[in-house]
Design a protein around this nucleic acid. Structure first.
Lengths: 221, 221
DNA sequence: TCAAAAGTGTTGGGGATACACCCATGT
DNA sequence: ACATGGGTGTATCCCCAACACTTTTGA
């Protein structure tokens, strides 16, 4: 070990979170993220990722959850550490930011939005139309999106954006919104049905056309 | 943002690095990592990952490089941030550790070893025989190995363990040491020759048998 | 009965595996 | 000459993209 105890006091430790959810827009379901307006310097008035200082008595994951709750008043359905950004020049005072990314189930976000007391200075933006952000937050948001897109291809991460039960078409639309490209419905069905992660239920979603079977992911892993 | 400026002063920020290199052992080339004996409390005398406090005027990557140099007196051929560990309970005093993992070219490590002045309290261990470590460092080392094994399959990361020029057999042996399993020489050749990341040179490595062509990775990405 | 979404079947190409085989060199 | 690793050829399998097709519902 090197350095002195005195050195440690000069470094601020913050936790920020890139939160993704699906929200309906003119062109169907879009992947969006919430931003907050900064209420103090530096970058007062700029949009920024939700975040706050790490409490010395708080685990990192807990700090990310708290941050997220303060922004959206919701529990994340998925939460994972992304990266720690700590260049000397990224902020006027030396600050390292431990960044998490989170998914919110679309049904719960809509419930939250209709409540009173939703934070005034929070606004959702399409991931393809993020405004200029404070600090290096644009870079952070882009990296988080890249990680999400990579992960959706080989894991069941997409379920974090949906209720417990969903149709295969709904799940496919999540993949399409995240990846930004169309997928073949029949091949998508075969792929996921054969994955043994997904189990059919006896329920059906009725709509304008032929009812679609509901599925759920198996518990645990 | 929440919390006060006073809160920030109580959190220590450390940087540690999991360093991998290939070293010859009785059973051929083995993947190994260096550990250091702690010279102070807590965990005095235990083996631990190389690391130190983050200097307030130092970028994170630079801190990892410095740490690595203090341990091995060498530049890493590859360096990437792994994860930030920050549970309240992981250390008696609240400390978050930003952990990097690094690769060292085997030829340079051997050069270093033969020099005088090599650190006394550093020892290399086979990744399959890591002793009990201080703090949560066993968990960290295992996670780093998992990440390395994942990454070797879909990137040119293995080159970080070799000199600039190498035969396909040498490269295959790196993959085998990292993954811990045998690979078919002919299929390995076809796979990598067709990857357009690898270019043949006009040089050959002469040895006991038919000379083998040397390859190098293309520059840049 | 028709439109649209749910769901099934079939085909073909590309990559991975397994392994037979030839080539070039030191001893 | 022969053992050994370097290097090529090729048959097989399996995954998956493409797309034609059938089924089931609401209007």
């Amino acid at each position: 070990m090197s350095g002195t105890t005195g050195d440690r006091d000069a470094i601020g430790v913050a936790v920020s979170t890139v939160i993704f959810s699906l929200r309906s827009a003119d062109e169907g379901e879009r992947l969006m993220l919430p931003l907050v307006r900064r209420t103090r310097e530096p970058h007062l008035g700029s949009w920024a990722l939700p975040g706050g200082w790490l409490d010395p008595a708080e685990d990192l994951d807990a700090a990310a959850s708290r941050t997220l709750a303060e922004t959206t008043a919701l529990q994340p359905s998925y939460l994972e550490q992304l990266y720690t950004f700590g260049d000397v020049a990224r902020s006027p005072s030396r600050t390292i930011s431990i960044v998490y990314w989170a998914l919110l189930r679309s049904d719960l976000v809509d419930a939250q939005r209709s409540r009173a007391g939703a934070p005034e200075n929070v606004e959702w933006f399409d991931v393809d139309a993020v405004p200029p952000l404070a600090f290096d937050h644009n870079r952070i948001a882009e990296y988080a999106l890249w990680r999400l897109r990579n992960k959706v291809a080989y894991s069941r991460i997409a379920a974090g954006l949906l209720p417990d039960e969903f149709t295969l078409t709904e799940l496919r639309e999540v993949y399409e919104a995240v990846l930004g490209q169309r997928l073949d419905p029949s091949n998508f069905r075969r792929l996921l049905e054969g994955s043994d992660e997904l189990v059919p239920t006896e329920s059906f979603r009725t709509g304008k056309h032929r009812p679609a079977r509901l599925y759920r992911y198996v518990a645990h892993s």
